[in-house]
Write a protein that binds this DNA or RNA. Structure first.
Lengths: 211, 211
DNA sequence: ATTTGTACTGGACAAGTGTTCAGAATATGT
DNA sequence: ACATATTCTGAACACTTGTCCAGTACAAAT
């Protein structure tokens, strides 16, 4: 066995180790998300998470630096999976009008299915206004979301509309209907679809100048 | 002195009492707001507030039921003063285009001047997604804000636009630029004005159907 | 079989939390 | 002047918080 063989062996081992560690970390994150989406950032303690994960509190600190690290990891993880879902809709090979419909339907479905998880995002985004420790996650995720909206606009032939204002509009509507839905109003996902369709039509109809 | 005179005296006294108590309560609330706008809901303790107010912790409980009562009182107090400010702009006797300009300027000025206080609103609104104790304040304030937008639309001759979607748009833009402003970008209030002017133009240009 | 390293435990710690309440201080009414 | 009511205090209470770390369990390599 050559020296290089030995080295590559060691590298493989190390990779397998860190892969296993990463898997476990994600498992813990998933349990943490389940806890966080019920109580929110401030009211969920590490003990709550540990209990729900079936591990000791110390284990959480073994995989995550501190509470902020754990929470940001969770938010990132969830929001990225949501963004991938939206991306996959955008990669569908359908015409513009159908794509818009599918996109909006995807969002309203997400309100119905993952309302509790989404509120965690709004929670952290608000925290970021007070705690710079959350600036980076929020910035990253928000940039990603704007990118998706930009791609959506390109795909639907609205190259003259900017991504940011349209994202803001979608985000506002999403948040508002999510809030009402969580408060018990079952009609909100449908209303969301109607309102967004309308707004999207009026915004993309008129050309907007850049800044 | 008649019986009725005596009674009305007592009533006066009682009124003066409760008026004084109300004044003190508002004083405490103002101090509390000063503390809350720095740290946010979850991270501000009653001791922080008491210290900044120059009273003992017990005094806070003498005027407010509990922490939630105190916080909701503060948010309401601040947000109502903000709404009055906006209302006063709307009562100016100027033509439609000028009014729109003033209104937007009023909002961007509020970002500059009261950024830290506004984030408290977004904080509580997010908390409401988890804690029903905040549902009422959030609902009340949001209804008030939508009313103001409705009045604004009427005054600017946009009777065909609905208040809610326009509020959502304004809120989203406000929040977004506030967030960036708090993160250090000084150019945000100006950008906010530009973007809102643009969006308002495109939204109010196209008629929207009601639901 | 023994060493070495990783994975995990759970008790201890110091610092906080909201809330309560007996009692002191102050104001009010007579 | 006195008595009554209101306003305010701050120590005490019972809990919770994130973090740390000595020690255990387990796996892998020699």
């Amino acid at each position: 066995m050559t020296k290089i063989d030995k080295m590559s062996r060691l590298v493989e081992k190390a990779d397998a180790k860190s892969a296993k560690r990463a898997r476990k970390k994600d498992d813990l994150a998933d349990s943490a998300i389940a806890a966080l989406k019920q109580l929110g950032y401030a009211r969920t303690s590490l003990r709550d998470i540990a209990e729900l994960s079936g591990v000791a509190v110390g284990t959480l600190h073994y995989y995550f630096e501190d509470k902020v690290d754990l929470i940001t990891y969770c938010v990132r993880r969830y929001k990225i999976s949501f963004m991938k879902e939206m991306q996959s809709i955008l990669s569908d090979d359908v015409e513009a009008t159908q794509l818009a419909e599918r996109f909006i339907k995807g969002l309203s479905r997400s309100i119905r299915r993952d309302a509790e998880t989404h509120r965690l995002w709004y929670d952290i985004r608000s925290q970021a206004m007070f705690d710079p420790a959350f600036h980076e996650v929020v910035q990253d995720i928000e940039t990603g979301l704007i990118d998706i909206v930009g791609e959506f606009l390109t795909r639907t032939g609205n190259t003259h509309s900017e991504a940011t204002p349209v994202y803001l509009m979608l985000d506002a509507a999403f948040r508002y209907h999510l809030q009402k839905y969580l408060a018990g109003d079952q009609s909100m996902p449908a209303r969301f679809e109607a309102q967004v369709s309308m707004l999207l039509a009026s915004i993309t109809a008129a050309p907007t100048s850049g800044d």
